[in-house]
């Protein structure tokens, strides 16, 4: 989470596109919520201004100028992976830059090129 915000060379969590929370208490472990690079992303389908478009290689691209801040994409993503930037009133979503991966010392996060769509992986 912190590494993702540090892409913008700032601290805190306002701009992070990864969310980590416990699975109902720390004894249950943690859940990493991040864009799963759906082959036909529902978030893009519901965007009324086409500000959110499928990105080549997976994921989506946000054109911040076109975005009207309606929040449809947040509702559409079943993983809750579209986060919200309350300061700008715009969505925040992973851009697959991979900056987080080397900052995860346990190898939970990695950036890999995949031959096939990742949705059939767990």
């Amino acid at each position: 989470m912190f590494a993702c915000a540090r892409r913008f060379a700032e601290g805190g969590l306002a701009k992070s596109c990864i969310h980590v929370q416990s699975a109902g208490g720390i004894d249950k472990g943690f859940v990493v919520i991040v864009c799963r690079a759906c082959p036909d992303p529902p978030c893009a389908r519901v965007c009324p201004t086409d500000a959110l478009l499928p990105r080549e290689g997976g994921g989506v691209k946000l054109d911040i100028e076109e975005c009207i801040g309606c929040g449809n994409c947040v509702e559409a993503c079943p993983f809750g992976a579209i986060l919200w930037d309350g300061e700008q009133n715009k969505p925040r979503v992973c851009v697959y830059c991979g900056y987080c991966a080397p900052h995860c010392p346990y190898g939970v996060l990695a950036l890999e090129e995949l031959e096939e769509a990742p949705h059939d992986r767990g």
Binding site: R6, G11, A14, K15
Partner: peptide, 25 residues
């Protein structure tokens, strides 16, 4: 809370951070 915490010198911040992170890990 999830505020942003801006820094004065962005480049130096990331460099210093990564140095400490490397030592820690």
């Amino acid at each position: 809370g999830k505020h942003a915490l801006p820094v004065a010198d962005r480049r130096a911040y990331r460099r210093t951070y990564d140095g400490i992170f490397e030592t820690l890990t």
